[in-house]
């Protein structure tokens, strides 16, 4: 198996707090990998390090074998590393159509294009339509994003990341706050993404994690606590003690 994303000895300190503690992690090509851990474990911080939103105190990050540790965030995206945010980060005044169109035309190198009218290229239109259908956004394409139902906003969040044609997709609690009924559908959409996209999913809902993931990593206090298949992790008594114990019984 090739490795899509790898970190070596990644450390992030916020003053005295070690938010990421010497994390060496591998995400395999095509994986459906879940990252779990109690609140404040450092999962979002880890994603922020991977995507370059914040700079690591120490350690290295590799995307498909190439080091990207010092690379600017937008260049990482261009190399195929996309993410969603735990708290919606959207463009409130734009429509889903514009948002997806933006991501697609940016990826295809149209972002510098200041003379052509947006939407005059056939391939771009087709791709927008394909993504909108995949994420069930066709009926709200022209709504103002800030007026969308929360579930739709979460879908749009993933759709935009997917529009960047990532090799690795990092999803930070995509289903958080989404009504119970819609969660499985949302995760099913993610699970149905092409297999050449490797996915790292952060999620608190264990049902979702177990149905989605083929591997699970557990993070506690910034450090990787354990890692294994769904089977191994769900039956690991240590994991139950620090984490699952409380969560599963809810």
């Amino acid at each position: 198996m090739t490795i899509a994303l790898e970190t070596k000895g990644l450390v992030k300190r916020f003053g005295g707090l070690v938010a990421t503690d010497n994390v060496s992690f591998k995400l395999e090509q095509g994986a459906r990998h879940a990252l779990i851990g109690p609140n404040g474990a450092g999962k979002t911080t880890f994603i922020n390090l991977l995507t370059g939103v914040i700079k690591p105190t120490a350690g290295q990050i590799f995307l498909e074998g190439q080091e990207i540790t010092g690379l600017r965030p937008e260049l990482r995206v261009q190399r195929g590393l996309a993410r969603t945010f735990q708290i919606n980060q959207l463009f409130p005044a734009m429509t889903p159509l514009e948002t997806i169109g933006l991501a697609v035309s940016e990826r295809t190198g149209g972002g510098h294009d200041w003379w052509r009218v947006t939407g005059s290229k056939r391939e771009i239109i087709d791709e927008i339509v394909e993504i909108a259908q995949r994420f069930r956004l066709t009926d709200v394409l022209d709504e103002r994003t800030s007026n969308l139902a929360y579930g739709k906003q979460r879908l749009l969040e993933i759709a935009v990341a997917f529009a960047c044609k990532p090799r690795v997709l990092l999803l930070d609690e995509p289903a958080a706050g989404v009504p119970e009924a819609e969660r499985h559908e949302l995760l099913a959409t993610v699970a149905a993404l092409p297999r050449d996209v490797s996915v790292l999913l952060i999620e608190h809902d264990m049902d979702l994690v177990f149905s989605f993931a083929d591997r699970i990593s557990v993070m506690v206090n910034g450090a990787l606590f354990t890692e294994g298949t769904v089977e191994q992790v769900s039956t690991d008594p240590k994991v139950r003690a620090v984490y699952l114990g409380e969560s599963v019984d809810e």
Binding site: V77, R83, F91, P92, A103, S105, W115, R116, T118
Partner: peptide, 28 residues
């Protein structure tokens, strides 16, 4: 012309949310 181009669209996205604009791969 510029503001209706993809470039103009990317400007609006930066104005609305620079963090997200970067996450979409825009060299803000």
């Amino acid at each position: 012309r510029i503001v209706v181009s993809p470039y103009g669209l990317s400007l609006r996205s930066i104005r609305d949310n620079p963090l997200k604009a970067r996450a979409v791969g825009i060299p803000v």
